[in-house]
Design a protein around this nucleic acid. Sequence first.
DNA 1: GTGAAAGCGCTAACAA
DNA 2: TTGTTAGCGCTTTCAC
Lengths: 358, 358
Amino acid sequence: MKTPALKIRAVTVSDVAQEANVSKATAARVLGNYGVVSEKVREGVLAAAKRLDYRPNELARSMSTGKSGIIGVVVGDIENPFFSLAVRGISDAAKAEGFNVILANSGEQIETEKAALRLLTGKRVDGLIVTPSESRDISHLRDILRSGTPLALLDRALSDLDVDTVTVDDKQAAFMATRLLVKAGHSNVCYLTAVDTDEHAYRNIDQIYTSSVRDRIQGFLQACAEAGIDKPERLVRLGATSQPETRAIVSESLRQPQRPTAILASDSVIALETFKAIRETGLSVPGDISLITFHNADWTSVTSPPITVIDQPVYNLGKAVAELLIRRLKGHAHPPERVILPTHIIERGSIAPPTTAK
Amino acid sequence: MKTPALKIRAVTVSDVAQEANVSKATAARVLGNYGVVSEKVREGVLAAAKRLDYRPNELARSMSTGKSGIIGVVVGDIENPFFSLAVRGISDAAKAEGFNVILANSGEQIETEKAALRLLTGKRVDGLIVTPSESRDISHLRDILRSGTPLALLDRALSDLDVDTVTVDDKQAAFMATRLLVKAGHSNVCYLTAVDTDEHAYRNIDQIYTSSVRDRIQGFLQACAEAGIDKPERLVRLGATSQPETRAIVSESLRQPQRPTAILASDSVIALETFKAIRETGLSVPGDISLITFHNADWTSVTSPPITVIDQPVYNLGKAVAELLIRRLKGHAHPPERVILPTHIIERGSIAPPTTAK
DNA sequence: GTGAAAGCGCTAACAA
DNA sequence: TTGTTAGCGCTTTCAC
């Protein structure tokens, strides 16, 4: 069957040129806002463009200039408020400099991350901001660098990759948080993260391929060691990758005879699920279990009790990487910078001395 | 041998063709995966491509095909978990059909929305999903339709624009929620929304240019009328556009002698801020003030008391629009559809009879 | 200051 | 099955 020939050919520079009785080049100059054109001609072209309702084809423009004005961003999970906020920081900084952002999710999966990067570089983005999901396999990031596309890292550093990076002082933060717990009298403290290993259990730091978590574990272990806690490695719990997963891990932990008396959660999504699981088990915060988490999420101040958190400068984290990247995009060559932003703890009501003597 | 001036000219189809000793067209056919090529040649080209590390230029590809494989999405505020979740629904559906998503924020501002749309259409996206921030000025949406780019509406219908639309039964939802409050004995109920008017006060429904809120107000008013509440219009509060804004409105409301005994919040962000404000004022939920909100956000189940909510099928909302749009993108012409998804109330603990007799 | 023509990297007719 | 030749809509020399 036949479809009506509804030809919706978009109006092009040529069309405008014709309408304005000038050459294609001249029309292009005023439409593209480059080169020199007499005021008189400019007006004529603009008028013609208006009459025809001309809309530039950015695709074609990018093709000839080689620039897209777009920054590609790949984060682990945009639904995590941590990333939403960081992305807003990026977007704001980008917009301020005339760049736009295209966003992709990696789901913290290396293959998805690679695919996203392939998509983005295929679209010829001008630069990339990535939250690398793994430090083990970074060949794709190396490729990007080799291809000449500027790259910057957000929230997670890669010691092997010398590029602009903005992170927070994860080790220090975890250390301080753990110490807070220890000082309250806890010795059976658990650090809970989404990161996982093949054996779903923590043995040593070399299994951990996410730099932020690596740092946090080190801070955690150090604080434990300082407090004379024996074999603190056993207190690291991995694999809180989803809500049910988290729930299961926490519930199971709490059912053990030697259950933890305090938990340090690696992000606010985990913390929320942990909080729910604790309640469900019939235990209370901080009476039975003390809780502290990374990320000062909105809800943390509104629970009973409100949650003590490690406040990260999330928005600025995003803003800072974007600025670093854009500086490079604008041609200011400079050696890669590694910025580490400070965090601080906001004490609220979710930490108390342990009740169950050990 | 010496390294020449690191020319980062990307390798093209021509390069591969040359390397494989075939014509550009042939190379393009195997690289672009179209037309017919003998197995032998195909292998040769693929090998050459691998040797040269060929990466297709999607930009060029889109230029010649006229398709980008991208769906542009414009939502009000990606930081609102409602939209994050809807966007995930869209992304999942898009990915399943081989499309990618590029996301833009409107900040609920008509000019920003227009700019975002300009950007997206400039990039020649294949289709658009929009949460229109206003029903008053939809010229830009009309333009899109006229240009032939498929468009679908998310969460907010536009009576004047006959396009694929997926919303929820906002009027019914607000009606049921309000009735729940009324049944509990409340007559001084307040509906609080981010939408605002020039005079920052509600007079009549024609001032409201956001269809969802319009519907909600109608449902709210209807339930009030049914309960014999006098001049229910005065109970509609507008302008909760930001956290401080919301806080101010709620605090001010609560300080009035005739303060509301129950609040219906239009989204979970507003509800959270409202909850905080109530507490700050020294009042309690539901003892002094009952609270119910749209959107079953994660945190609502974890407060004390947990919040009674209107549960919307947010993920499916996104999934459904995306599927509608993609069907159209694939050429299945069909008359525009308006899908309305049901909601239901999850009763928790934030509603109780009013204590202050009126 | 303006125009003609080449070309970005790819796909799409049409030939061979 | 493969190659030749045009474009897509724009920018960019390079003359005039």
